[in-house]
Write a protein that binds this DNA or RNA. Structure first.
Lengths: 320, 320
DNA sequence: TTGTACGCGTTATCAT
DNA sequence: ATGATAACGCGTACAA
């Protein structure tokens, strides 16, 4: 900046003002400064600026698993809205590793970013809740603003659809037992079934294809005619297991997933599933967080609408 | 830091030294300082430290599309190695948008990160090549270190496999025409075919499932018995198009993909494809970049081995 | 409208 | 072994 100031024949203070768009700079001076900036290829040092201003105009999105196709669209929504409001978006992958989570949280504590979007379902310790917003998976601390769908109602709706198709022997594959999403979706399943569930018809996986496959192999002993899965990957695993046992989907077995990940519609058969408005969830999260960073108080319309997407992995029960 | 110094009864200089692990601090003083750190919950401000040291011990990974399942494992490899060497990893999604790319590149120019890993195939302007490493898709500037497989040889191998299965009417679905990966894989296809290719048997998509589907619908007019696709998504699209035309895969048509993304093995039929050693590519890239940042000169073992994964989307040609 | 000078939180140099 | 202080690059209060 000193170079630019020298070249334009002004002080660094004036350069700083010109670059910040202050009205306190004459048009002529501004033009000279801009020419000097172009000539030197100077760009403002955000680190120094951040140190001085105590804010970076950056937000950090914490992902538990960057390979999970659910998150991509959410991040796009966050970026859309952040860019509109003049903020940059960085992404950090915690890989569910506490050390990495701590290292990324430090980016906040240290002023490198102004706020955190949590897609991890987990609040890093020692961070003020006012600079946080959680998306999709609820954060234990109720002070953290949340953006999500009503997972319980969505699960209820998915299972009600299976009931409407005539299914009664409906099984469930949930995620890891401690997981809050697992609990909410399982609760919705129980709601729809009116509590009439054979415990043997409920299995829990870890949201992976392989775990869905394993769970389905076990469930097959209970001869279900339909299965509600807590995500699309496990639904795909369930279909693979059914096929391996010479059952056709949806002929012999109907399968419902959850999330409507990009591959859900392209699978064979295309998956019936619950769609979350992922992009909009990202947008709302960004709006909430940036408002909080600017110390505005905003209403919190945290619950967004889901949609049941009826595709070809479900069908009416066979008359037997 | 001033608080800690006061509480420990020392100067900030000593606190800084103690926290940096300098041997110039007595055990007793160090203990007092550590107690004060714990009591105050103090954490070092990386922004200020970065400003002073002119380095941040962070690298930034630039992704063209965060939703692309290819990148997840590469990022994990980068993180593994970076963490081992005491560096943090941030991720930026350019969404192929020049503005976003520029905003993220500024993170480098401004000292917020010490180096960039490019998965975009594109070098942001005004960045010294010595702090860059490209992965997978070649960067036009030859000064940028690269980590990739031999795409041409891999394509040649995939098509040779189809030839070995007896196929002769082999079509190709490539990516966007300008794309370097597209060109390399197409060249490998031509190599294997000995230049004997009906131009009507070559179509180009945009690496999406939908574009693969559209390309396949066109190719069907040329009655191919096998198709080599430039990525797995387009291969899945090709299978969908074949199915829509009552062709069985691999019965009537063999399909080969490229990349071995996580869903390739779970699709029905499981995809024959070329596997890139994605995690290892990430590790090597991190090693290269961090060596360059530390001004070490390292050999550049840029070309990593690929593997042809033979699954069920390919079969011997039917005797007709 | 512009310049001077201080402070943001560190770390390194120099002195003790 | 420790302390005082300058400097990293910027933004702003205050003076001019």
């Amino acid at each position: 900046m000193a170079d630019v100031a020298r070249m334009a024949g002004v002080s660094v203070a004036t350069v700083s003002r010109a670059l910040a768009g202050s009205p306190l700079v004459s048009e002529e001076t501004r033009a000279r400064i801009e020419a000097a900036v172009k000539a030197t290829g100077y760009v403002v040092n955000q680190v120094a600026s951040g140190l001085r201003l105590q804010r970076s105009r950056q937000v950090l999105v914490l992902l538990p698993d960057i390979a999970n196709p659910f998150f991509g669209e959410v991040v796009l929504g966050i970026e859309e809205e952040a860019q509109r409001l003049g903020f940059g978006v960085l992404i950090g992958n915690t890989a569910r590793n506490p050390d990495r989570e701590a290292a990324l949280a430090r980016q906040f504590q240290t002023g490198a970013v102004d706020g955190l979007v949590l897609l991890t379902g987990h609040k890093p310790p020692d961070i003020p809740a006012t600079r946080l917003v959680g998306v999709s998976e609820h954060i234990a601390d109720p002070a953290v603003a949340m953006v999500s769908i009503d997972n319980r109602a969505a699960a209820r709706e998915a299972v009600a659809y299976l009931l409407a198709l005539g299914h009664r022997k409906i099984a469930h594959i949930g995620g890891p037992a401690g997981n809050i999403l697992t609990q909410q979706r399982y609760a919705g399943f129980l709601d729809a079934m009116g509590g009439q569930v054979d415990p043997a018809r409920v299995q829990f996986g870890d949201y992976s294809i392989a775990s869905g496959e394993a769970a389905m192999h076990t469930l097959l002993n209970t001869t279900p005619t339909a299965v509600f899965c807590s995500n699309d990957e496990m639904a795909i695993g369930a279909i693979r297991a059914a096929r391996a046992n010479r059952l056709s989907v949806p002929g012999d077995l109907s399968i419902v997933g959850f999330d409507d990940i990009p591959f859900a519609g392209a699978y064979d058969p295309p998956l019936t599933t619950i769609r979350q408005p992922r992009r909009e969830m990202g947008r709302v999260a960004a709006r909430l967080l940036l408002a909080a960073i600017s110390d505005e108080d905003l209403p919190r319309p945290a619950v967004l609408p889901h949609t049941l997407i009826m595709r070809a992995s479900t069908g009416k029960i066979k008359i037997s």
